[in-house]
Amino acid sequence: MVVSSAYQAAALMSVISFAGALVFVGCGRLASKFGIDDAKAVSFFDATCLTLAATAMIGDACLHLIPETFEGTDEETADRYGVLLVTGVVAVLAFEKICDACNTGTIEPFGVANLLVEGLHNFADGMALQVAWNLNREAGVATTIAVAVHELPQELGDFAVLRRAGFATGPLLAANFVASLTCFGGVALAASPWVASREAEMVAFTAGSFLALALHSLAPRALATLDEAATSQGRAVRAAWLLALVLGVVRFLQFVGELEHAVPAAEESSSGFGSFFSRGKEL
């Protein structure tokens, strides 16, 4: 891996933002090569990626962000984080309703919400990267790998989410790339005591927004794609595939969690969100 600083790691995350488009193009070419109907291929791809996005968001929130945010907190602090988590849920639902009431274009509100939530999440990733690289190269590389591998399924899902929301391919790639650039902001601001001391609060809010976006907007649309199968047998096959995908993503996220904590104890203070929180709380 040719990465030697937090800024280069952030640049790598921006490159990963194009993963969804590359996979979509590759799948389209494979479908054409094997004579698969374009409409069926697009429907199947959307079902797969919407499920991927919803599962990645729910898994990231429940397996990583929430447990590590609340780890080692006292009752008063836990209550504050809980309020922020619920605030994140309400904020996404309210934002979608406001956009729905004001929207006169072709972009669905959940697509805009997805971009904002991803930008916030990338910002937190940037902060974790900066803290890790400040400690030493080994911790920086370990954290870069951990962030990269959990970004991959997220970006694959984001592409399908934004397509489903009505974005054309060009604006979609541009908007998703801009959202990825907030990682640089996280790197730049990680040294600020004011920002670092509030990082746990920000991620509690992000976890709530992940849950709201996944359960309210993405999961229902993923399930709705089952009805796009032409036959009951096709729906059964697609449902089995989506269930297998969910289980696979959950196991993958568990692996990411193991990777984040694979750094030796002396370096563990910067290998992932949870340890970064403990540093922030001490400031």
Score class of each variant (00 low, 15 high):
G185S: 10
L162T: 04
A165P: 15
L172G: 03
E199M: 14
N176Y: 05
N176T: 07
T169K: 13
E201R: 10
R198M: 12
P171S: 07
A179C: 12
A175W: 13
A207L: 02
F205P: 06
G208Q: 00
S192N: 12
R164Q: 08
F184N: 03
A207E: 01
G166Q: 07
R164H: 09
R164V: 03
V178C: 14
S192Q: 04
N176Q: 12
S180W: 09
A179Q: 11
A204C: 10
A200V: 10
A175T: 08
A207V: 00
N176H: 13
V195S: 02
S197V: 00
A188G: 09
A204Q: 09
R163E: 05
F205M: 09
R198W: 08
G208M: 03
A165H: 11
A165D: 10
R198H: 14
A188K: 06
F177P: 11
F205A: 10
F177H: 14
F177I: 04
A204T: 06
A190F: 00
F167P: 08
R164E: 07
E201Q: 12
V195C: 08
G166T: 03
F184M: 06
R198L: 10
G208F: 03
F177N: 12
L173Y: 01
V195Q: 02
A191F: 02
P193E: 02
G186S: 08
A191T: 08
A200K: 12
G186W: 07
R164K: 13
L181R: 14
T182G: 12
A188Y: 09
R198Y: 06
A168I: 05
A200H: 08
